[in-house]
Design a protein around this nucleic acid. Structure first.
Lengths: 302, 302
DNA sequence: ATAGATATGCTCAAACTAAGCATAAGCGAG
DNA sequence: CTCGCTTATGCTTAGTTTGAGCATATCTAT
């Protein structure tokens, strides 16, 4: 069997959460796991750094796939794909490089200016049609509920973490290009906006986004994406870019400060309009102090 | 390369969180991923059911390993190991079968009766010695802090989720058998109690326990371990068995009920002493309704 | 000086938690 | 058949955490 490593490498630049791609945006960087690599992580790290020149900071494993349709086209060997999420500071965006906003692939995921037009004007109507096209009432109801949960319709809340569920739902409804490859039935007009990727790379990207959106809530991983010093608003904008939603400024600050995640550098930002903001830096010490995750059990003292 | 599937299969029986083992408890069940398997999950499922006769309910991927020391002894080929966590209802514990309490392997993890003696009497003193044995002051402090975080010393709280960190720390300190295999230096007397396993199976088990302890807090997975109907105390005892800690009874009930996770069956338990308890069943409907995870961002309405 | 921005401090009410009191309803022993 | 023990279940109370928003501070540009 062959083993492939696939990277979802993320950086945030000026409000755009970006992912590193190859082939002008149609695939995620990947490469074979070779004998000379000490470990999977080392392999991936080697690999991405060689291919892109970017040092990768934080890395975590995402998922391992080996579905029946994964096989090497030449050798007809089966392929195992191990995907990773990596975070990096992108100082200068080389225009020629493969960084793309992830909302390019998932335009319905950006709710920073409210529900995007593509969602209300295109996606939801098509999903409504898909619901209506179900054979029986039970099936209709099942589809309706899946849509309601994933897309926050019928009075439900939009949950930014459900990136993968939404993609899979659209896939199942035949509304993304990848779904039509095996059985080319629908024309492009019937698809939903958002760029497709090779094989199942867009699904892997969805998995990475979902993981990151979940993780920023309970681990201080955002700082892997920030420069050495930053203003609280800059930090907030980065979180917002990732989450695809706006946060309440004052409460966000309270949260950050009470968790003692940052400390003042003493300097203030040479600003773009408005009162100058204090600059902060991440308190690395906190990592050691608080590996602690947030428990949620009603513990007993006795 | 070869691909192996390894299962951490969990069931709870009478207050013992148990894991399925082979070779009289010295290894986790595992088997090669073969060409006939549709997917990894299918492979694992097939495989465990064939080997143990147990139907596996819930399954989730844990981690994929491929360290340098993982290779097949015969063919000298490199081995990738994909581990899974599975939950099942163990109706009757066959004494001959391979179920073992996981506290057999991690006796320091059971805090249901307060910090266990093995921790206070054996482990902490040896860790203190390990700290003292560090070369410089900086190293001593680093070790001290790791111990404090992982084991809740120096006024910190015990965090039941840090199962893997604790195991790795003990490994690093040379206090578990697995750590002494390559360089057999210390004698058995210097080790910490708790049964070792082959290769890195105990580490995989630790990963599974940690994942489960985290997961029960935000997803209703406990019910995969419960029979069709149960009392709230039974449910509580199961959670406590997994978490290794006691929970506050009244608050636990409030939590369960307000989340609408269960509904009364209308019957009451033929009890073991005390007022008869109402029987409940899991409301499967809730799964569809609430895929929603608990967000933790200070969102903004505007 | 004034308008337009952003930064920052503070308040208030609603929701959620941790702890524990109190009562209910079985069982078995005397 | 009543006491003592055990478990079930309802409810209270105080402390904390969140969600929202008001008010003020400090810059820049005009």
């Amino acid at each position: 069997m062959k083993v492939d490593l696939i990277a979802v490498l993320v950086a945030v630049f000026e409000g755009s959460p970006s992912v590193l791609t190859i082939q002008t945006g149609s695939a995620l960087p990947s490469g074979p796991f070779a004998l000379e690599h000490r470990s999977l992580q080392a392999g991936l790290r080697d690999w991405v750094e060689k291919q892109t020149g970017h040092p990768v900071g934080y890395i975590e494993q995402l998922y391992t796939f080996a579905d029946r349709d994964r096989f090497d086209e030449e050798s007809d060997e089966r392929v195992i794909s191990i995907s990773y999420l990596g975070l990096t500071r992108k100082e200068q965006p080389l225009f020629s490089s493969g960084w793309r906003s992830w909302y390019h692939y998932f335009p319905w995921e950006d709710h920073r200016d409210g529900p995007p037009a593509v969602l209300t004007d295109t996606i939801l109507p098509r999903l409504a049609a898909w619901i209506a096209a179900a054979p029986g009432k039970a099936d209709k109801d099942a589809r309706r509920q899946r849509v309601a949960v994933a897309f926050g319709t019928e009075g439900r809340e939009w949950n930014e973490e459900l990136v993968l569920q939404r993609y899979e739902l659209l896939f199942g409804a035949g509304l993304v290009k990848e779904a039509t490859r095996k059985h080319p039935a629908s024309s492009d007009q019937e698809l939903v906006p958002g760029r497709a990727m090779d094989a199942d790379h867009r699904r892997i990207l969805a998995t990475g986004i979902a993981r990151l959106r979940t993780k920023i809530k309970y681990r201080p991983v955002v700082f892997e994406l920030m420069p050495e010093s930053f203003t609280l608003l800059h930090l907030q904008r980065t979180v917002e870019a990732l989450a695809g939603r706006l946060v309440h400024k004052q409460n966000f600050r309270r949260l950050i400060e009470q968790q003692e995640l940052v400390e003042e550098t003493g300097e203030t930002a040479t600003d773009t309009g408005g009162r100058p903001a204090k600059l902060f830096r991440f308190r690395h010490a906190i990592l050691a102090e608080r590996t602690a995750a947030g428990t949620r059990l009603p513990l007993s003292r006795t």
